[in-house]
Design a protein around this nucleic acid. Structure first.
Lengths: 238, 238
DNA sequence: TCATCATAACTTGTTGCCAAGCTAGTGAAT
DNA sequence: ATTCACTAGCTTGGCAACAAGTTATGATGA
């Protein structure tokens, strides 16, 4: 069994943080101080700190030191539910804001096309909305819809805020959905930049669809990317 | 905007991996090779590789090189459901195995005690089972029960494989549960050792309870820790 | 007394150098 | 021809030395 001092130090630091040893913006012991305390080379302590920073616990200032970051607001979120994201948030009393950040045609993607039940010749558009609380991005909501079902989506897409409202405008009134799929991954550089998060924040990815109840027609494939440090999630007990 | 070459290289490597550029056990370009290609110091490439290793994508051999790891089997798991874990797995046809790895008295923990609705003087025991597929640990299932409800738990705890069976033995027959709570975190050193996983595998943590339907008595507080690289999760659409 | 500057002693940030491990090739000894 | 030991050249692993930024202190001079 190889014991890794870097991870040991990281464990210890995280434990101290969750136990509340440090105040927000309080300075941590310096790299040299800890390397002497643990009797390990400075680089080991340094690497532990770097990881801690990428996990979003701390920030650092060259020449000064490392400090505890203000922790993210934890939002209780009910996963699943036909209720729209906006409804969930405003109902729960958060200073919620949603921003349409673009509508673009995607290149052929077998999985998405198959879920939408359209042919490769069809055009599919991705409408992205950024979900924010207190001006901070917390989730990225992407809806994929086919032009064959919504002929004007190319023009309409970039001004939509509620997809449900758009579907109603287009004559669809009752909706249902299949099971949601949930997975976890790390942010790509693009996602990091959009969600303004460091690299070691795991993302919770929920994929689902929206089906017109009347005709069993798939209207949309949905992919929501949540910052895992911003939420605690609830799953109904059936 | 500060662009970080380490993360840029990491992004690129991950993308190449998911796109299938490398076969399992195929060797990656060496640190020196990539540092020349990107025209950055070797340490940057090295750090990207180290992170890739901690994420479980690759393994390295000193003197030889870095190689693509065999990817984890992805198990489709239905979150929630009164169905026991064992049932879910065997039903889905996996070579599933469960190992009781101990029963121990826990020190007072306000949240757990409050969920179990017992007083601080009461004794609470944690029964841990390791869930494995093909001999590889994939989840750690911990059940917390009070001695006041199960007087013999201290003796029985370390031989139990099914809690439901134990409850029935003790005269409880119908069960229900509250909403499940879901969160994500990184493994502690202990969890890494039990689950045999590297440090940057996010863990999916599902907390729930088990309530005797007849008397509305809380029998157990449950905490299941899943390796996020071993599962894809499904959530019912209600 | 007060303002200014140089400096020393800390902090974090960067990277080059050497160690350790593996392998294939070389050539001497059998 | 075969075996063995050595070596050169690659690989990853580890870390010390240096760079850059900040701050407090104290000497200097108006």
């Amino acid at each position: 069994m190889k014991l890794d001092v870097e991870l040991m130090i990281l464990d210890e630091l995280i434990q101290e943080i969750v136990q509340g040893k440090y105040q927000v913006n309080e300075q941590f012991p310096s790299e040299n101080e800890l390397s002497q305390k643990y009797n390990v080379p400075r680089i080991k302590v340094r690497n532990a700190f770097l990881k801690l920073e990428e996990m979003g616990y701390i920030y650092s200032q060259q020449g000064k030191g490392r400090y505890l970051k203000d922790k993210q607001l934890k939002i209780k979120l009910h996963l699943t539910g036909a209720q729209s994201f906006t409804e969930k948030m405003t109902e729960a009393g958060y200073a919620f804001e949603s921003k349409n950040i673009g509508c673009e045609k995607i290149t052929y993607h077998p999985r998405i096309y198959s879920i939408l039940q359209v042919s490769p010749e069809d055009e599919v558009f991705k409408i992205s909305r950024l979900r924010m609380i207190d001006g901070k991005p917390i989730a990225l909501h992407s809806s994929f819809v086919a032009k064959s079902i919504f002929p004007n989506i190319e023009q309409d897409g970039s001004r939509l805020s509620s997809m449900f409202a758009y579907y109603r405008e287009n004559g669809w009134t009752e909706f249902t959905s299949s099971d949601s799929h949930l997975s976890i991954s790390f942010p790509t550089s693009e996602e990091r930049s959009i969600l303004q998060c460091p690299s070691l924040i795991p993302l919770l990815i929920v994929e689902s669809d929206c089906i017109a109840a009347s005709q069993h027609k798939v209207l949309e494939y949905t992919k929501i990317i949540y910052r895992s440090d911003s939420f605690t999630y609830k799953i109904p007990s059936e």
